[in-house]
Simulated assay, not measured.
Amino acid sequence: MAKKELSVGELSRRSGLPISTLHFYERRGLIASERTSANHRVYRREILRRVTVIKVAQSAGIPLAEISQALSQLPRDAPPDTHDWERIAASWHDDLTRRIEILTALRDKMAMCIGCGCLSVKRCPLVNADDHLANDGPGARLL
């Protein structure tokens, strides 16, 4: 029979995150622990799934504030179900799609830019795509 709770060390080993990161997540309200009679932190097993979601979301570039907001919608006294996780994924879908489009454009134009050598902020297709900022006058507009 599986234990219902994980120590902070067990959660660290299972998640691959340092204990200090788990404590940071807890201070930020992303995860929660309970205390044993000996005043040791223990985490419900479903916290491991929350930690996994946090790791994946962070690797996709989602800020901790947005992750926190999404996780705050999950039930605190019961494990999240499939619908809960689908709701979070749907809330991030449009933003992730936009990020993918931006990164794809950056990837596709990067070689051209590096090889260009123009060193011109005015004409750079990455910083000043289609020169739409030239109408605002000289000087950096995005930096």
Rank of each mutant, 00 (worst) to 15 (best):
P79W: 15
R141T: 10
Y43C: 01
Q58P: 06
W85T: 11
T82K: 15
A134S: 13
L71E: 06
C124W: 13
E26Y: 00
Q73M: 10
E101Y: 01
N135P: 03
L143S: 11
L119M: 13
V53F: 10
K55H: 06
G115E: 13
R44H: 09
R41G: 01
D81P: 14
L96T: 05
I47P: 00
L6P: 06
V121D: 13
R14A: 10
R44M: 03
L106T: 08
D94A: 12
S120Q: 12
L30Y: 02
A105E: 11
A140H: 13
A70T: 01
S91K: 07
K55D: 06
D136A: 11
F24K: 05
P80H: 13
A60N: 02
I88Y: 11
R50L: 14
S68T: 01
N128I: 11
G115V: 01
A57Q: 04
I100M: 08
S15M: 04
L64G: 02
D84E: 15
M1N: 08
I31F: 03
S15I: 03
T21D: 03
P125F: 09
M110S: 11
D108I: 04
D81E: 15
R99K: 14
E101C: 00
T52I: 00
T82S: 15
R141C: 07
G137P: 07
S15K: 05
D130C: 07
T21N: 06
T21K: 08
A2H: 11
D130Y: 08
D130W: 07
A60Q: 04
R98A: 13
A38N: 03
E66L: 02
L143C: 10
N39P: 00
C124E: 12
L74V: 09
M1R: 12
